[in-house]
């Protein structure tokens, strides 16, 4: 079957089977390889993308369900060389170690901040609880979300060396 989907503002047509996972379409067919597979069972959040404005695990979404959808992947977050404030915040707080959780984690953070622009610690923890990070212990990721909130509110939040 042929499906049409908009990925990072660009319309794409893909020849696929109805049961192919959105994760595979993004990675294998369209080469948006920033979307990672950590478990393939909806348990880790590495494959997180934003579909029609909502956070989804792309390993659980089938081609059929993705037909006509609008998708944002990590590659669509920065504009050219200009990083999104959440991406900047992840770098500045040291929230990135191996980076395998990072694309999903950043999209989950963005989605949280879209809903709650100034989240408290509990809201951040809950908002990210579907995304596993094995490296950081989450501390700096939580810091990154707080810094992102300040950046997005226009308070700069530069805290660099």
């Amino acid at each position: 079957m042929k499906i049409t989907l908009t990925v990072n503002d660009e319309k794409r047509e893909v020849e696929t089977s109805p049961t192919t996972r959105l994760l595979d379409i993004l990675r294998d067919d369209l080469h948006f390889t920033g979307t990672k597979e950590g478990c393939g069972k909806g348990e880790c959040g590495a494959c997180t993308v934003i579909m029609n404005g909502k956070l989804v695990s792309s390993c659980l979404v089938l081609a059929l369900q993705a037909d006509g959808a609008e998708i944002l992947t990590i590659e669509g977050l920065s504009k050219g060389d200009q990083l999104h404030p959440v991406q900047e915040a992840y770098i500045e707080t040291g929230a990135v170690q191996c980076g395998f959780c990072t694309p999903g984690m950043i999209l989950a953070s963005k989605s949280l901040l879209d809903r709650i622009p100034d989240p408290d610690e509990q809201q951040i923890k809950r908002g990210l609880s579907g995304n596993i990070c094995r490296c950081t212990g989450y501390t700096k990721i939580i810091e990154a979300v707080k810094l992102s909130a300040r950046k997005l509110a226009g308070k700069g939040g530069e805290e660099d060396e």
Binding site: R27, F32, T33, G34, T35, K36, E37, T73, I74, E75, L77, S78, L83, Q87, Y90, I91, E92, G94, V96, G99, F100, T102, P103, I106, D160, E161
Partner: peptide, 19 residues
């Protein structure tokens, strides 16, 4: 607290992992 040299590629999805 020098920025990690590989962080930019990792936050943009550009870093290439095996798969």
């Amino acid at each position: 607290d020098f920025k990690k040299v590989d962080a930019r590629d990792k936050v943009t999805g550009k870093a290439l992992y095996t798969r």
